[in-house]
């Protein structure tokens, strides 16, 4: 695609991008772990698009701001050297320019939007030699349940994936809306009851990455966080084996217990998972999780029913 070639090769943008990177890097001096410090191909590609877009826009935003301030200062009332044009209110040439500058920029940006949206569609599998790891994600009030269907284990508020291998997430919610978000890997996506969303991510190197819910979901929302451990392939197998060897089994009964509202739940694992549990939750074969229950208050939850 021509546009793609232009975007990739345009020297001005590259310079602008370096500028934008430096600006943002200065802003974030000494800080790591955000979306500008990606650790996987998706996050890196999204950051590239982010920086490209900023660079393109800065190319007109900075001159505009400078011109605004410059005009305002030069044409101040006390400046006797400035020409006063009390009737000047139209110039076809300037009109043409002021319409075409934004239109051209937006045209250019539209190319990026179109290509970027398709390249980085969360439903699109990643290019990789390896078969993606399947992970099913369920947002609960207020914790994350990660099911590994192929390994038949599950974990709460911690996610262990092999580094360098794509992960295919299928996501749903047991109750209210949430958004699954690991800033350094990129690609936020909503979780909704009765629906399944898809997401493909990959961590390039082993490491620990912070993840959390990005969409407000109630009183326990701040605690809806987890650490994504990207580990070597053998360490992943070790994790699966150790998970299999202890903890509860996740069946209907224990899921029912888990689905109750609770806050700041520590990470844990389940040694087995009832087959098709995710599917049942996503298609409402298992009824949606309950909200606050006045007869069984959970720690830190105050279901005010208003009298």
């Amino acid at each position: 695609m021509l546009l793609r070639a232009i975007v990739r090769n345009c020297a001005a943008i590259r310079v602008g991008r370096i500028g934008a990177t430096m600006l943002l890097a200065a802003l974030l001096a000494g800080c790591q772990g955000g979306v500008l410090d990606p650790q996987g191909p998706v996050g890196a590609a999204q950051r590239t698009i982010l920086l490209n877009s900023v660079a393109i826009m800065l190319a007109i935003v900075i001159p505009t701001i400078l011109a605004t301030l410059g005009f305002a200062w030069w044409f101040r009332e006390t400046n006797t050297r400035a020409r006063y044009l009390p009737e000047w209110a139209y110039s076809g040439r300037i009109e043409l320019v002021v319409w075409s500058i934004p239109i051209l920029v937006i045209l250019f940006l539209s190319g990026i939007i179109w290509i970027g949206s398709h390249d980085l569609d969360p439903m699109k599998p990643l290019d990789s030699q390896q078969k993606p790891l399947e992970v099913q994600v369920v947002s609960l009030d207020w914790k994350w349940l990660f099911i590994y269907p192929e390994q038949n284990v599950a974990s709460i508020n911690q996610l262990v994936v092999p580094a360098g291998r794509p992960v295919h997430f299928s996501l749903t919610s047991a109750s209210v809306m949430n958004a699954f978000f690991v800033p350094q890997l990129g690609g936020m996506i909503y979780t909704m009851n009765g629906m399944t969303t898809q997401l493909h991510l990959q961590a390039d190197q082993p490491g620990e990455f912070y993840g959390r819910s990005a969409h407000f979901s109630g009183d326990g929302f701040p605690g809806m966080q987890f650490v994504l451990h990207a580990v070597a392939a053998d360490a992943f197998d070790a994790f699966v084996n150790s998970a299999r060897s202890r903890g509860q089994a996740l069946d209907k009964a224990s899921y029912h217990e888990l689905a109750r509202q609770s806050i700041d739940v520590p990470p844990s694992t389940y040694r087995s998972v009832e087959p098709d549990l995710f599917h049942e939750i996503a298609t409402q074969g298992v009824p949606p999780a309950p909200g606050p229950q006045a007869d069984r208050p959970e720690p830190g939850v105050s279901p005010k029913t208003g009298g």
């Binding site: 590609a45 950051r47 800065l58 939007i113 970027g116 980085l120 990005a214």
Partner: peptide, 18 residues
């Protein structure tokens, strides 16, 4: 400018709800 940035879906995937 930041608004147009958020209108770029891949960038929005990083910045939405933040």
């Amino acid at each position: 400018m930041t608004g147009v940035l958020l209108a770029v879906p891949p960038a929005d995937f990083l910045l939405h709800n933040s």
